[in-house]
Computed example of a mutant assay.
Amino acid sequence: MTALFTIIIVLFVAVAIWQLVKIFDLAQLSTDTSNGGIATDYDNKINGQLMLWFLAFIYIITIICFVYWGDLPLMSNAASEHGAEVDNLMAISMILIFTVQIITQFLLHWFAFKYRGEKGKKALYYADNNTLEAIWTIIPVITLSGLIIYGLFTWTSIMNIDEDADPMVVELYAQQFNWTARYAGPDNVLGLANVRLIDIDRANVLGIDEADPNANDDIIVKELHLPVGQPVVFEIRSQDVLHSAYMPHFRAQMNCVPGMITKFAFTPTVTTKEMRENPDMIDKVRNINSIRAEKSKDLMAKGEEALEPYDFNYLLLCNKICGKSHYNMQMNIIVETQEEFDAWIKEQKTFKQSLK
């Protein structure tokens, strides 16, 4: 391995020296005055044609990407009430971006070809045009303002918590590198908590105030269960560094900031079982398992254990690079019927019962 690195370094040094020599040669005054160092019509023609070829390449690679990877599965399987609004905002933004990209790239490359340098042609000195300046300033301003205002209205509608709907209160507690969930219990009020109150010996890992009566019925779990159709308000804390609670299928994301509580609310609309039966998800799971099967063959050939088959679960992920094990910071989310949720929650110990 050391020899390989040495060879790579030597190659890089050789390339650097070669580039320096080229720069030095270009910096010298040329003694050849036949064309004064100016590109010929042939040079300009070749470069103009290359611009058109590059334009074709951009369009072709874009079409290929859309054909093979353009289904955007996360744009078609929102599992929360507000998810359709977020998807609609994203779709409008992408349509605008690609429309502008197609037009501007065509004009850029076509003009580079059409107005390439030719002997006898002189470029027109065009100082300014107030009308054109106004057009290409006002149109982007109006377009971006519309997107921003639409986005603000969408965000406001998502973040307005309807207290009359009696939302269930759940705390998401982030720490390097795992998540813990705390349900507010029958009183639907979370007990007070502070990281200074953490007591590992008494199994008080979240720093819950044991003197607060609202904390007695709180339920601490490592797998998040949510009843379908039930509004949920998440109160989010971080023990150590900046994390980000990201639940992609619910179109939910909120930073977890040490020293403060942030909030996000949504209503799940699709159970885990229903999502597993979604045709797009079935295809995705099949594709993942085919990849895992091939990988397992290599592992077994080395005497290692095969990978277990993948089954879909909603996930709570960390969307901030919070340390070396950031990639592994996740927790399963199970969306189920109210009856299934009630049966599960009854099996869990309360905070008071879990204290040692």
Rank of each mutant, 00 (worst) to 15 (best):
A3V: 14
T6W: 01
T6S: 14
I8C: 10
V10A: 14
Q19G: 09
K22A: 11
I23L: 13
D25S: 05
Q28V: 04
L29E: 15
S30L: 09
S34A: 14
N35C: 09
N35W: 10
G37D: 05
G37T: 08
A39R: 13
T40M: 02
D41V: 03
D41H: 02
N44V: 00
I46T: 09
N47P: 00
G48V: 04
F54H: 07
F57S: 10
I60G: 08
I61R: 14
F66H: 13
V67P: 05
V67N: 03
Y68M: 11
G70N: 13
A78P: 03
E81M: 03
I102T: 12
I103N: 01
F106W: 10
L107T: 13
H109D: 06
K114M: 12
G120V: 06
A127R: 12
A127S: 12
L132T: 08
A134F: 12
L144Y: 09
G146T: 11
T154Q: 13
W155C: 05
W155F: 14
I158Y: 01
M159W: 03
I161R: 05
D166W: 00
M168F: 05
V170M: 08
Y173K: 07
W179C: 09
T180E: 03
Y183A: 11
P186I: 02
D187C: 02
V189P: 01
G191C: 07
G191N: 10
L192A: 15
L192E: 15
L192V: 04
L192N: 10
N194H: 13
V195Q: 13
L197Q: 06
L197P: 03
I200V: 15
D201V: 09
R202N: 15
A203W: 08
A203I: 07
N204Y: 02
V205H: 13
V205F: 13
L206M: 14
G207P: 08
D209W: 06
A211G: 06
I219E: 10
I220M: 14
V221D: 02
L226K: 10
P231M: 00
R237S: 00
R237F: 03
Q239Y: 04
S244N: 14
M247A: 15
P248S: 12
F250D: 04
C256A: 15
G259M: 11
K263Y: 04
F264C: 04
F266C: 02
T267E: 11
N287P: 00
N289S: 00
N289C: 10
D298Y: 09
L299M: 05
K302Y: 05
A306D: 04
A306I: 02
P309I: 07
F312W: 01
Y314W: 04
G323E: 13
S325E: 15
H326E: 14
M329C: 15
M329S: 09
M331A: 12
E336C: 12
Q338D: 12
E339C: 04
W344D: 08
I345G: 04
K349T: 02
T350K: 07
K352H: 09
L355V: 01
